[in-house]
C-alpha cells in the first residue's frame, strides 16, 4: 500500500465580465434580456458578446429579446457531483423569441422525479417563459428557470 496524500484546490478568482456582458447584466435588473446583432450575418446573439466569432466583426447593435421562447433540448441530472447543484435539476437550451442562438438555462416548473415524463413536458419545441427572481440583482441567476407556458 502506497502513501496517499490528500490535496484540494481552493483558489479565489475575480473574473471580469467585460463591457458587453456588463450591459446584459445591468438589463437583467429590469427583467430585460439583451442580445447583440451581428452587422454582417445579422444573427441576434444571446448571450451577447463583443464580436461575432463567425464573421470576425464587432457587434455593437443591441437588441432586446423576449423572456419567452422554445426549448431546443433538455437533460435532467440525477447524479450528485462535488460543488454542482443538488439533483435532480433540469438544464437545457432555450431559444428566446427574437434571438438566433440558444441560451443555456435551467428548466423547471415540472416534476423531475420521472425523467421520461419530464422530457415529455419539456420536449424540443415546448414554449417556455422565464421565472425571475423577485428582486433581480444583475446576475445570470436572476432568471431562476424557464417553465412551460400554459397553452
Amino acid at each position: 500500500m502506497v502513501l496517499r496524500i490528500e490535496a484540494k484546490w481552493e483558489i479565489p478568482y475575480v473574473h471580469s465580465a467585460g463591457e458587453h456582458a456588463t450591459k446584459f447584466f445591468e438589463a437583467l435588473k429590469e427583467k430585460k434580456i439583451l442580445g447583440v446583432k451581428c452587422p454582417k450575418c445579422k444573427r441576434v446573439l444571446v448571450p451577447p458578446r463583443a464580436f461575432c466569432e463567425r464573421c470576425h466583426v464587432d457587434t455593437d447593435e443591441w437588441v432586446e429579446v423576449k423572456d419567452e421562447g422554445v426549448v431546443e433540448t433538455v437533460t435532467i441530472n440525477y447524479a450528485r457531483f462535488t460543488g454542482l447543484p443538488d439533483p435532480p435539476y433540469a438544464v437545457g437550451i432555450v431559444k428566446l423569441d427574437g434571438a438566433d442562438t440558444g441560451m443555456l438555462a435551467y428548466l423547471g416548473g415540472v416534476d423531475l422525479s420521472d425523467w421520461k415524463k419530464a422530457h415529455e413536458k419539456l420536449k424540443v419545441g415546448t414554449r417556455v417563459k422565464a421565472v425571475w427572481k423577485d428582486k433581480p440583482e444583475g446576475r445570470i441567476t436572476d432568471i431562476l428557470y424557464f417553465k412551460p407556458v400554459e397553452e
Partner: peptide, 22 residues
C-alpha cells in the same frame, strides 16, 4: 464559460445528454 454558463453546473455528461435528447 465563467460569465454566462458555469452556474448551470454543466459538464461533459450533460452536454452529451442534450445531444441525445435531440
Amino acid at each position: 464559460d465563467p460569465i454566462y454558463e458555469r452556474y448551470s453546473g454543466v459538464g461533459a455528461i450533460s452536454v452529451a445528454a442534450i445531444q441525445a435528447t435531440v
